[in-house]
Each structure stands twice: as C-alpha cells, then as structure tokens.
Design a protein around this nucleic acid. Sequence first.
DNA 1: CTAGGATCCTGTCAGC
DNA 2: TGCTGACAGGATCCTA
Length: 286
Amino acid sequence: MPELPEVETIRRGLKDFILEKRIKKIEVYCNKSFQGDPTTVESAKIINLRRFGKALIIDLDNEKSLMIHLRMTGQLIYDGKERYAAGHPSDNFTAKLPNKQTRVTLTLDNGTLYFNDQRKFGFIKIIETKNVKNDSFIKKLAKEPWDMTAPELYEKLQKHKNSAIKAVILDQSIICGLGNIYADESLFSSKINPERKAGSITFDETNLLLNSAKAVMEKSIASGGSTMKNYVKADGTKGDYLDLFAQVFHKEGQPCPRCGTKIIKKKVAGRGTHYCPHCQKEVKND
DNA sequence: CTAGGATCCTGTCAGC
DNA sequence: TGCTGACAGGATCCTA
C-alpha cells in the first residue's frame, strides 16, 4: 500500500478537514490496530500533521501525538459534510462506514475519521510528541531522496553490494519513502535491472536512480498520489489512478513505453517486480 | 555485520 | 460449485 507519495497526499488532504478539530471519542474495534489508552487523547485538539517517510504523525495540544502507519492495506477516510478518502484504494472509499474492515474510529467536532485496514498490518499508536523522533520506526529511517546526495547513496549501496538493487532501495534505513511501486518505477526510469547487485551500480547510475526516485514521487504527489480522494460517486471506485502515471507497475504483458518490448513480472527480493527486459538489461559483471 | 526467507492478516483470483 | 495455492503498494523477526 501507501508509499511516501500516498501518505503525503493524505497529510495534505486530511489537513483541510481535521486541523484545529477536537477528538471527541475514539472507538477501537481491533486491539491490534491501536496502541495506547484512547481516553488520554479524547478531548485533545489536532494542531499539526507531519510525515516521516511512510508514517503520518498527528500532533495534539496535550503533548501527545498519534503515529499512524498504514502498511499494506491501511486507509484513512474522513466523513463529514464531504468525504475525503486516501490510502489503499478500495471500495471502502465510498462504502458505508464503519464496516467489517474498520479498525478504529475517531469522532471529531465536524465528522468522523475512519481507520480501515483489511490485513491489520497497520496501526495507530499514541506517543509523547517529544518522543516522536525517538520512536523505534522513525529513528531508523534514512533520508528521503530529496535530502540525500548521490555520494551518500552510492556509499550505502556498496555496504549492501551483494543484495539485489531492488531489495536495497526498498529498505527504509537506506533510502526512505520508496515502496514496491516507486522502486519499480525508479528502476525503470533509470534503466537499471532490479536484480542487479547493488555493488554493480555505477556512481552515474546511482545519481540517475536518485533523481528518478525524486521525479516519480514528485509526479505522483502532484497528481494526488496513486490513491483516490474526494470521491462522492460509487461508480468512480473502479478507476485505477495508478494507470495515469505508472510506466511498468501492474503493466506486465503491455508494451514498454520506451521500446515496445513486453513488460515482464517476476519475483525479486520477495516482491512482485515489473520491468522491461530490453531497457533494463541484466549486467553480468559486479 | 549482511542476506534471505518466514511471518503477521484478510481477501481475491486463477486453476483444477 | 468448491477447494487450493499464490499473491498482495510493508516491515520485522529469525536464521545462517
């Protein structure tokens, strides 16, 4: 699910609806999905929304924060006068809520925020605002592509020289923000085969990869992420926004936009991986 | 230390 | 139709 662009989309979109609003009540339907005592944040006001990699932080006015990670299938759906839904795309965006996949609801002054999560990998947890940066997950995050230099990334790649480049760029402690979609898209854009060992990537290729990562994520954020938002009509839910900008992801069997060769799907680093076998030729030496 | 695989959980889809 | 296995936009834990 949601990668950096989707979480950033959620942050920007949700802000307009929930900033300066108070949490009146929290209902937890699945204990695994919520860590902490909900009553300690009830009546607190939302004063800021921040993002660290794929994690969303909602700061409250009582020195506590909600840390939200959507993992694979998490969604945040605000339902008030309007509905704003983002995260893992599904019919939940327009469905009646709460429903079977609703794990937590936050009742606000002006509406309800639903945390839906089919697979229950995601979570909301309460942490002290001052401890956000010390959180075990946040602490490990590397820089995002915009803050990282090519020499920095190149050095990290050498440290993991025997791993597939795809596996390396998915590691949030190496470079932060890429997930399965943007890893594939960045590698395609850089003409790098996902199975190449990180140690075989040249400095120039590293530079290209870094620039590609920035470009594909910027493009996604600009178009509202690959997620859907502001939906009111049920007939819109079938639309796949990913198609609008993805070059290879979920495009297996379709012609490569650069050379026309059929896009391949193959398991790399334990993940479904899409690439053009012609543009992204394997390089033998490493 | 790195590298690779299993695992958490629910739902859907292809194939028999 | 019913069953089965594979797979899913993530991250962690375990093992070698």
